[in-house]
Design a protein around this nucleic acid. Structure first.
Lengths: 202, 202, 202, 202
DNA sequence: CATGAATGAGTATTCATTCAT
DNA sequence: TATGAATGAATACTCATTCAT
């Protein structure tokens, strides 16, 4: 008796709506009405399924970071043997291979989320969790090559490069030579892992 | 006759007010009233000196990019001789040497601006101009070492790493090992300039 | 055939839900969803059993006044003989004896209802009916002592004191010395019934 | 230079607007738009002068209690000599003499405020402060007659009667015999002050 | 009877911008 | 130039009520 719940489906629609609208309007300018429209729902229903607008954003943050974790896992699973370098590159490819613009809306949203994380503590908490999780994984992969030495700094550098590519490709489409992101970061990795040293002074 | 114009000074105060408020509230949530208060002025005066809120933002973008250009020039001027590698590192240091958090408000604002550039065409125009200008300069410095070969991609990679460090340090304070940003990017540069190659497959 | 109606039971639950929620949120802020939750039911069911939210309130008003009538009757039944003064005091005790805070939720709701009666005609009608009924009964009891002389005014005064104790105990818990309400009102009654006169002027 | 402030005047208008609307609609149903209209202002302006709707209510609570304090002071000032009983009666008259309905909107608002005090802590705080202040003053006046003995309980009883008259006259106009409130409460006071005792059992 | 999703109207609040002083 | 009041539109959120299941 009673009506079967469709809350999960609706929440999905709404989160997808936010993703779309936020990518081209930003978070604050993404009105609940627009989000609802993008989701094909009435505005009132949005608040039936989500406490407030921020909760939609937080859900999106978690979905995007889950998505990335899956992609990384999939790439790592494809690496044959225990080639430590290949595993580092698989990680980098998971973020950049298909082109940062493969899913422009997701990239734009992620960059927007990064900025929101600066100001909204709740967003920061989830964003930080996602970033630390990714970073620790990369650190481990890097450590398998370098033996812990500077693994943290190397991982942070590579991860920063990835995030930077996201920002640049989202903010200035056409700036980054197509396809160069993945290969360049991999060359950076090679240099760092082989112990390249900057010129003496600095 | 008439009092001497203090417009420039007032505009400065207002732009500085936006910088402060935007760093901790974001652009949309930075109300004109708050900006005025941070500037020690009345709300009405803001619109006397600026057409609208966006104009303040655009002015800030230009100021921040001018500031960076000056820093780069200063660092380059200090490089003795024509050590091409040292010049690349001087550029990188101009962005990262004092620590990405040396001026946290400026960094947070810049990251916020990057996100706004995605959605506001007027912001994008100025942001893009600034980024392209920096990037071309870096490309030239890199080209002086590698001889144009892949200079663009290398420069983009290094520049992405810089932007990424900005994002990470602003969004997750404490994540990046203090002081590691500049040295890591310089090691990345060394690797790229020395022609490090990723492992064959990729 | 068909299942036995449980309408009366459901209505009871719902009215009890309103009582609980209204006591701590007030009538307007008591949402149907909250009332349903407090009753352990679904929101839809509330409107199956009640036309609208106001009907729940009106039912509550009637239940509370019926409750009071029962209490008064019970107290009066216990008075031996035809001691007219004792009957007045029994009436007063019915309202105040167990302490105004014996049932804080009911008292708070009654005070809230008094305020709603000012603005909602339908509520006023029932509230007035209840009040007049009580008041007439008290007037009669008082009249049995004083012989109609000023019975109305005396009854109104005592009844006002009761209502005032309700308000004060609900709005400012701890204000009224515990246990003093019943005894003080009875002393007031004694004074009025014995023909105390205020000082001449006034 | 600049524009002279008229904030105090505007706040007065707005508070008066709330008083009017609240008296006939209640607090929750008194929309900001209605309040503004009653004050002859635009809705936006209401929030320019008040943080939120509750702040208007809190200001009203303070104004009404200040008003009462003034009335009491004025009545007490008129009492000749140090007639302690006359002073108690002056206090009671300050609340009831002109008829509880002399200012029906104020009385209705006060009753509404009493009910809001049950649910809104901020309202309770101010309401309690007002009530305690009045009650302490009355207690002192009563103590001057009875010598502290039971002064608290006596004062509370008389104060409850006053509040009860407010409730009854606001909720059921016409219920209380016109003019009887003040005289009845004064007779109650006389009884209590002369030490009337209820019938033995109780 | 019962559930809980859905709607649509209503409401407080915010805020860029204007303007009288 | 400068002030701060004023406006009007926008927007998140609430909620009584309805209705498909």
């Amino acid at each position: 008796m009673g009506r079967p719940s469709n809350t999960e489906e609706r929440r999905q629609q709404i989160v997808a709506g936010l993703l779309r609208v936020m990518a081209e309007r930003g978070y604050e300018r993404a009105s609940v009405t627009e989000i609802a429209k993008a989701a094909g729902l009435s505005p009132g229903l949005v608040h039936y399924h989500f406490k407030d607008k921020q909760e939609i954003l937080l859900t999106l943050v978690e979905q995007l970071s889950a998505l990335v974790r899956e992609r990384v896992a999939a790439r790592l699973a494809r690496v044959k043997g225990d080639d430590a370098r290949a595993r580092v590159e698989a990680f980098l490819d998971a973020f950049l291979a298909t082109g940062a613009d493969a899913d422009p809306a997701a990239v734009a949203s992620w960059v927007t989320i990064s900025a929101e994380a600066i100001q909204q503590p709740e967003v920061r908490t989830l964003y930080e969790r996602a970033v630390r999780s990714d970073l620790e994984q990369l650190e481990e992969l890097v450590g398998a090559v370098t033996g812990k030495r500077k693994a943290r700094a190397v991982a942070a550098g590579l991860f920063a490069a990835i995030q930077g590519y996201f920002v640049l490709s989202a903010s200035v489409p056409g700036l980054v030579p197509p396809g160069s992101a993945a290969s360049t970061v991999k060359r950076m990795a090679a240099g760092l892992l082989d112990g390249a040293q900057p010129s003496e002074e600095a």
